[in-house]
Design a protein around this nucleic acid. Sequence first.
DNA 1: CGGTAAGCGAGACGGTACGTCGTGTCTTTCG
DNA 2: CGAAAGACACGACGTACCGTCTCGCTTACCG
Lengths: 213, 213, 213, 213
Amino acid sequence: MPIPAGSEVTRIGPVGGVPESGSSGRRRSERARQAILSAARDLVADASFEKMTIEAVAARAGVGKQTVYRWWPSKAAVVAEAVLEGGEGDLWPLVPASALANSDLHAWAGDLADRLADHRGAAMLRALVSAASEDADIAKRLYDRFTAPFHTAVISQIAATRQGSVASMSDIHAAADMLVGGLVFLVMTRTESITRERADAMIRLVLRGLAPR
Amino acid sequence: MPIPAGSEVTRIGPVGGVPESGSSGRRRSERARQAILSAARDLVADASFEKMTIEAVAARAGVGKQTVYRWWPSKAAVVAEAVLEGGEGDLWPLVPASALANSDLHAWAGDLADRLADHRGAAMLRALVSAASEDADIAKRLYDRFTAPFHTAVISQIAATRQGSVASMSDIHAAADMLVGGLVFLVMTRTESITRERADAMIRLVLRGLAPR
Amino acid sequence: MPIPAGSEVTRIGPVGGVPESGSSGRRRSERARQAILSAARDLVADASFEKMTIEAVAARAGVGKQTVYRWWPSKAAVVAEAVLEGGEGDLWPLVPASALANSDLHAWAGDLADRLADHRGAAMLRALVSAASEDADIAKRLYDRFTAPFHTAVISQIAATRQGSVASMSDIHAAADMLVGGLVFLVMTRTESITRERADAMIRLVLRGLAPR
Amino acid sequence: MPIPAGSEVTRIGPVGGVPESGSSGRRRSERARQAILSAARDLVADASFEKMTIEAVAARAGVGKQTVYRWWPSKAAVVAEAVLEGGEGDLWPLVPASALANSDLHAWAGDLADRLADHRGAAMLRALVSAASEDADIAKRLYDRFTAPFHTAVISQIAATRQGSVASMSDIHAAADMLVGGLVFLVMTRTESITRERADAMIRLVLRGLAPR
DNA sequence: CGGTAAGCGAGACGGTACGTCGTGTCTTTCG
DNA sequence: CGAAAGACACGACGTACCGTCTCGCTTACCG
């Protein structure tokens, strides 16, 4: 998997795409869209992917079921968009593409750990992973959203500090996969405490592994 | 989370347990039990946790639905037992508790990567993780089955080579979580190639991170 | 129920009526109106009242759904107008108001039988009766369209031949109800063969019953 | 249509047939069956065939929807059985097969008129006719239930009184169709008053028509 | 002739019911 | 008394239509 250098991970549209309207007919209701995503987030947060139902999402959003099915092909797609896109502010911290110092990585990982320590955040991520296990496209979106930015950041850091000779590409891959995977695995297995300390330990270990001898 | 040194990870019985020998009446049919677990494995392997149904398991096992519900409380429990216990041979390699050399860890990780590269193995692990996201007990079983042995192995290795001073306990935790989590995350996100090389890179990185300076 | 002697049964306008001339704006499209009625007739003819949908009517007529709802309040109303008014030629024969001879009645009944022997005609009448069972107004329209003309005809015949003393009003009612009802019942119960012979037998029986001793 | 002389019109089983049980498994619940038919009767009586829903029937019967669909193929079939079979006492009077006197026919017709004068009875018959318009089998059941007994009665009467020479078979058919059809048509078109007088007039007319000169 | 007031096609909307499927429980008969 | 068979109450599925509501157009009249 090549590293999509300056890739735009941010805005991933609904699967059905923007209304695309040629012209006639009533337009898609943005109000309904937001209500659905928000309802999905809420329901997934206090139950689980399996227990969430489209019916309940529609009801809570004050929307007909068909309005959900018109724009998303499956429960997994709704959850993916709801959890990945978030609502107003960003749900998940993004590694700054120009991260130069180790402290940037620590800050990011600590931030992420905070979100995952929160019950709501953890539940949402669990749901997202379950959704990914159902649908390969979502799986890819999940991977790209969390892992790819780390690649970019580490590469730009190395380039800046001329230490590139040391860390091979496969090491960077391994580092990113393990870091993200490690945190996600803790969430999936509900290991109680996802603390900044734990996240720091992971970052430290990985950076030490990547560092020149 | 303390490391349960000599813990028995191997045999995790059905939740209901064996029918408490000594009682009168017909005994639990081992044949039915195996048929159910095997059917569950098959169905989960070529669909997904969500799409697998107890009804289909019962049908394929040639068993009444009640016979499933008599012994397992939920779909998640059936899948957990089916996937974790495996059939005849062990489904998932176990780190030898007395692993002394780095090569032992490489061998284990490579072995695991092989299983996960296989479509059937990957599907089964995905199902297991989904099951874990539904049920905290299963989540714990999953974590213990894959992470704890690594802890034990690394600790015994350190004890043997008197390098214990270097690696802190939290580093060992981090290492185990990341290693297992990294591989599992690749499976969940369906990253195409889970190769021995990838696994080796992970192990190498982690060992370098753990090593004394 | 008094016999509305010279009643205009023929033209029954749309419920909403013509757009109240004098107003500005675009006029009702006669083309759309005909397309809708024709589509309704077609759809009802090869399915049933229950299975016909307004959506399908609009689609087949190449018309927006709203254009149907603007002019008719319900599916029953559309069907009633479509089936009762017919298209170009009259769908259902009308007893001539001045029927003087028995042969006129035989001719009418035979004609009606022919229409009902046709699959399309039978299906349309079935739909009309179903529509009537939903809506009392339509029920009245149906009754008046088929039964009242018979009343008128028989009365005028009696007046002409001075045999009025014999047949009481209630006998005439009974005769009309039974004649029309008998044929309609055959259609509703899908009795295979609605032949001129059958219709003749009915007319004969009724006339013999009405005749002076 | 031949006259099924001594036909058993009485018990027409559920379409799905009696459980037919070879052996094992839970038996069909008679309680549920009665509850469903009774609920269907009630709902159809105070709405219409179109407005009645299977969902409402199931709910009112305290039964799962599936239990309805397991035994009846369609709404029409449920209504047909509910209305034709009736509950405890017979819903619709049956002409005695051995009717010998005209007064027997008058009694029957008067009885039937009473049922149809009742709002509930009328609504149920309307629903039955609508059901028949959807399904040819039900149409036949409806025809046989109401018309055939009349055939039998008239024939037996004729045989007894040796007046057979006069009334031809086609006249008897016509008489039966018109009598039943006349009453049913009044119900369908909601003609307000279905009185014994009206029924008597019909019977009188028909008998006069059938009588020898 | 330009304004304004419908009607029109299209099609999304909040809903209700459909007929099917799966859940977990319950009878029933057999071994 | 376990196990197979299968009916049961329940509830969600994804679809089809309902009747209503925008949309961006035509028409047509009226000033």
